[in-house]
Write a protein that binds this DNA or RNA. Structure first.
Lengths: 334, 334
DNA sequence: CCAGCATAGGCGAACGTTCGCCTATGCGCT
DNA sequence: AGCGCATAGGCGAACGTTCGCCTATGCTGG
């Protein structure tokens, strides 16, 4: 692969002059310029970004560490991140983690070795990992979609309280009192926080908390399905179910169908995320719309601000969520 | 950020000796070794992969160019690619394209500038782009999940003929004759190829081809929904629908439900991909299982072979697909 | 007692850039 | 005629590595 020197030799100038021409800096005579451009063209010269980065001390790369994005949610964050990064001329170096996040520190190190300009974390599994927090604080500027142990890393995320409060209030307003919830992996902060909000909103409306109405669905379709069967087995009087994401809600709908419970007449269902599929489940799903792409984009912008300013970590950013009302919810006891 | 030189100064040796110690090459006295390791530790030394790549002429990076992976299919390929790459110690540089693939050449150039060791393409929109083919042939070894104009780039993909032949044969065996198909974007090769196979399989069974039974669903849930309504409007006698992916099948099921057609009694439905959601639609969806992760992984392995051997592009790799039978299909006229 | 060799570590060069500074040429002005 | 200045382009250095080769020291064996 041709280098500046090769082009220079062919155009009979010094390689620094070639650099000048190719970067449009410095004064160069039109004829020389032409000769250099031709030589570069003929040799198929492609600049070496590695060398450039080495010299300029900026790799124009963002590192992204994400939970396995085979599921919909992380993939959509990732899309938002990638799109925004691209718009700023940055490349994205992608690392996905084991489900338990055990290899996070290792990948952080790889990103640091590659001198990425910034790091975006989307790894709920590492929320309590002190080591991850420590490494993040010593490395390049970082932003996280989740909590980071020990702080110092600004967070950008959809309003987590709202994702539980909105649907529960909606169901309460419809007259429901026995409201079940299918959670994501309960050992994760985000699922636990939503559970706390669930309890609090119920309490505000004078509805007692019943732990038998909460089941772990592990974020997956099958988990939502199995959780619903368990819920119906031990709390058959429930009249509504909130699933913490739409995929689990698909499993919920299926299980209710199997049990002969009509939706929404016998049981209302609310999902979360507003995945395209939610619009066409049977019945179409009332759900919480999450600003996935915007969150990813906001994370990138925040990171770039940090890189540019070099200042202290800014405040957390919270993006609003909203309800989408469809046919899967109705008045209690209809 | 500390460099070899900084560590060397602190340990009072030459920086090359530090390099030796840190890479475990060459003979170094235990005491010196200790001093160097301590110095590196104290300074928080992190090697500079950029400089290393410059010298070693290998970036240990794979470039991936993919269609927008907000939809399920490309995301799952990507996961397969990323997992396999990780296992080989390679990082993944991610670029996603505009829907029309117009920025493909630009991103290829970025990858070449960054001296990636190989390129994996997952961009159906550029299948006919001659320029893309040309650039790919001059760059580092590449592998594509789709066709590349002008050839020279080995292809790794699920068996495309099977994805249409299997479900159509299944429906024919159930006695269906009026079999409709909801395609992906029809201007793409893969969708067109499946249409050709659809015609051929029908012909083999003596069933005439009726263009009114084929509709474009554009790969999306809503597209599948709208296409089904159009199909029912103009060919109400259909008894089965094959949707070229599961998300469109969700839309198909919903539209049939709206029209009061029971599945599978009044109309059978087959999807494609075996997305987790397919197992819990109402009714659960008969579908084609695609080896997404395996395909991504196979692409990486093929690419690594090419990088290692430096040989000529190997043959195309085709991975088998299979049927998953669920409740959405049944005998015709049941 | 010295050749020979293993061991420890230094040193120069190269990878491909960018940047700042220096020099040579030519021209206009007083 | 001579000064100064703009223009064109050369040159050295630096970014942080790795690699191969060289040298100094000390030990072993004949």
């Amino acid at each position: 692969m041709a280098s500046l020197r090769d082009v220079a030799a062919r155009a009979d100038v010094s390689f620094q002059t070639v650099s000048k021409v190719l970067n449009g800096k410095g004064a160069v005579a039109p004829a020389t310029r032409r000769r250099i451009l031709d030589a570069a063209e003929e040799l198929g010269y492609v600049p070496n970004a590695l060398a450039r980065s080495l010299q300029s001390r900026s790799s124009l790369t963002l590192g992204v560490i994400t939970v396995d994005f085979a599921s919909a949610t992380p993939a959509r964050f990732l899309v938002g991140i990638e799109r925004e990064a691209r718009q700023h001329g940055l490349s994205v170096l992608l690392s996905s983690l084991e489900p338990d996040g055990s290899d996070c520190v290792r990948y952080l190190r790889v990103l640091m070795e590659r001198r990425v300009d910034g790091i975006i974390m989307n790894a709920p599994a590492t929320e309590e990992d002190e080591e991850v927090g420590r490494v993040l604080r010593t490395g390049p500027p970082a932003v996280s979609l989740h909590d980071i142990a020990g702080g110092g890393v600004p967070r950008v995320s959809p309003e987590s309280a709202g994702t539980a409060a909105l649907p529960i209030r909606h169901l309460l307003a419809l007259g429901h009192r026995r409201i079940a919830m299918v959670t994501g992996l309960r050992r994760q902060h985000s699922a636990r926080r939503r559970t706390a909000v669930y309890r609090q909103v119920l309490a505000e409306h004078g509805v007692p908390y019943d732990p038998r109405l909460v089941e772990d669905g592990g974020w997956q379709v099958e988990g939502g399905y199995a959780a619903t069967h368990r819920l119906l087995d031990r709390a058959g009087d429930l009249t509504a179910i909130y699933a913490q994401n739409d995929f689990m809600a698909v499993g919920v709908l299926n299980a209710l169908h199997e049990r002969g419970r009509r939706v929404p007449d016998d049981c209302s269902v609310v999902g979360c995320d507003d995945h395209p599929v939610a619009a066409r489940t049977i019945p179409p799903l009332t759900t919480v719309r999450m600003p996935f792409f915007d969150t990813g984009a906001a994370a990138v912008r925040l990171l770039l601000d940090r890189v540019a300013s070099g200042g202290a970590p800014p405040d957390d950013t919270v993006l609003p969520v909203s309800m989408v009302y469809r046919a899967s919810t109705g008045p209690a006891g209809a």
